[in-house]
Amino acid sequence: MLRINHPTSLQENKRRREHVDMMYISIETAIALASVVGNVLVVLAVCVNRALRNTTFCFIVSLAVADIAVGVLVIPLAIIISLEFNTQFYTCLFLSCLLLIITQSSILSLLAIAIDRYLRVKIPTRYNTIVTQRRAYVAVFLCWILSFLTGLVPMTGWNNRNAQGNLSSSSDIVCEFTTVMRMDYMVYFNFFGWVVVPLSVMIALYGEIFRVIRRQLNRRAEATCDGDRYYRKELKLAKSLALVVFLFAVCWLPIHIMNCISFFCPKCSIPKFAMYVGIFMSHVNSALNPMVYAYRINGFRNYYIFPSTCILLFSIDAS
């Protein structure tokens, strides 16, 4: 029996789709604003507060810059790609690669922070001679270079161009991430190689950091000295930074797990709503880090309170 779509039902479906798109764009825009404002405050806090100008916070600034890029670049690109606009294959592929570059820079910055914290508690007497400000800048530079190199791998040929058939260089496609990006690259190279391995290393490093700190504090339990204060301060900061790593894993693993399901089980269908939630969670992560710093690190908390107080007093005077 031939089924005819009624014009009214088509209009309702179109309105529903437009409503969903508007909700998606609104939520993404709110996440982008929160990410940019919060992480700009992080960068400014490090620049203004001399107590925060050390090697660890150099890596935190690198992470904040990556999170700012998420709000300024990644989320707008995700919105554009979700609207399914027509463009050339390699243009869509390059835009998709930019999303990977920013993600990679975040995880490499987190790995650099973990290594820095490990060296600080493992070799405290030699730390300042080994981890200098100049070497920290070099490490940040290498993190970003490596992020670009790994993120742009699909541009060298590991992509879905062959799956598009006889596609000429001038032909347009509907730009979607899964249309241009191969899932074996996303699963084996991006997820297993550049997410699981760094996260595993970070978990091992923070486990060792907490073990060393607890051992040192137990040794100094009956003594009150600078060493005791030093390790208690390191313990508090290590807990805060480990929380940042934990939030990164919680926010990013769902979308990667769904990619694995799509790759290893092609017949399994993943609801579009679940994919949207996974994308939202990966973007929300960029807005969470400044909140962790504000609530757990005094230098950031004091800096955040001061601008907020000034804005409140200004609004009271204006009224």
Results as ranks from 00 to 15, higher is better:
1 M>W: 08
5 N>Y: 12
7 P>C: 00
16 R>A: 01
17 R>G: 06
17 R>C: 00
17 R>E: 11
21 D>L: 15
35 S>I: 10
36 V>I: 15
38 G>D: 00
42 V>R: 09
46 V>H: 04
47 C>L: 14
50 R>D: 01
51 A>Y: 04
55 T>W: 02
57 F>H: 15
57 F>T: 10
60 I>L: 13
64 A>I: 04
68 I>H: 06
72 V>G: 01
74 V>S: 11
74 V>K: 01
75 I>Y: 02
80 I>T: 10
90 Y>H: 08
93 L>I: 10
95 L>D: 03
96 S>L: 00
104 Q>G: 09
105 S>R: 09
105 S>F: 00
120 R>K: 13
123 I>R: 14
127 Y>K: 05
128 N>P: 07
129 T>L: 02
130 I>R: 11
130 I>Q: 09
132 T>P: 14
133 Q>Y: 09
136 A>E: 03
138 V>C: 11
140 V>I: 15
141 F>D: 04
144 W>S: 07
145 I>E: 05
145 I>F: 11
155 M>V: 02
155 M>W: 05
158 W>V: 12
161 R>T: 02
164 Q>R: 04
169 S>T: 02
173 I>F: 10
173 I>W: 09
177 F>E: 09
180 V>R: 06
180 V>N: 11
180 V>Y: 08
186 M>R: 08
189 F>M: 13
189 F>L: 09
191 F>T: 14
195 V>R: 15
197 V>I: 15
201 V>G: 02
206 Y>T: 07
206 Y>F: 07
207 G>I: 05
209 I>H: 06
209 I>R: 06
214 R>P: 01
218 N>R: 14
220 R>Y: 09
224 T>R: 13
229 R>A: 13
229 R>M: 13
230 Y>V: 02
231 Y>K: 05
235 L>W: 11
236 K>Y: 02
238 A>D: 06
239 K>F: 00
240 S>V: 14
243 L>R: 04
244 V>Q: 11
245 V>C: 15
245 V>G: 08
262 S>Q: 14
262 S>M: 05
262 S>N: 13
263 F>I: 08
265 C>L: 09
266 P>L: 01
266 P>A: 03
273 F>A: 15
273 F>K: 09
277 V>M: 04
278 G>V: 06
281 M>I: 06
283 H>T: 10
286 S>Q: 00
286 S>F: 00
295 Y>C: 12
296 R>D: 05
296 R>G: 01
298 N>K: 15
299 G>A: 03
301 R>Y: 05
301 R>C: 03
306 F>E: 14
307 P>V: 03
312 L>P: 02
313 L>P: 05
315 S>E: 01
